[in-house]
Amino acid sequence: METLMSILVGLLFSIGTYLILSKTLLRIVLGASIISHGVNLLILTMGGLKKGGLPLLGGNNLSYTDALPQALILTAIVINFAVTALFLVLCYRTYQVVGTDDSEQLRGNEDE
């Protein structure tokens, strides 16, 4: 299972990287978003999948699932959500002000 997840994470990372390297701003935002999902899956996989029962006191299980990665992912999701929202708004505003969503034309020059 871990191997399968790792391959999936790698797949998500490569798709995300491909999108980030493209020219359109919207694709860059989507690429960043996809990588963030890959990262979350990676944290989950690194904590170990499907080991033992619920991490509750008084249960019958002697081995517990590690709850920490899930707490980490929750935080990471919230932060990534905020950053992606901000990034989308920023891209839209840039499109409005600069008049292009092509990152090639966002280089600018010294004399303006």
């Binding site: 950053v83 990034f87 920023l90 966002l106």
Partner: peptide, 17 residues
């Protein structure tokens, strides 16, 4: 301003990555 928006896209993307 135009320059701020243009530069900040690069700044934000670098830091996100």
């Amino acid at each position: 301003t135009k320059k701020q928006l243009r530069e900040s896209i690069k700044y934000v993307l670098t830091n996100i990555v």
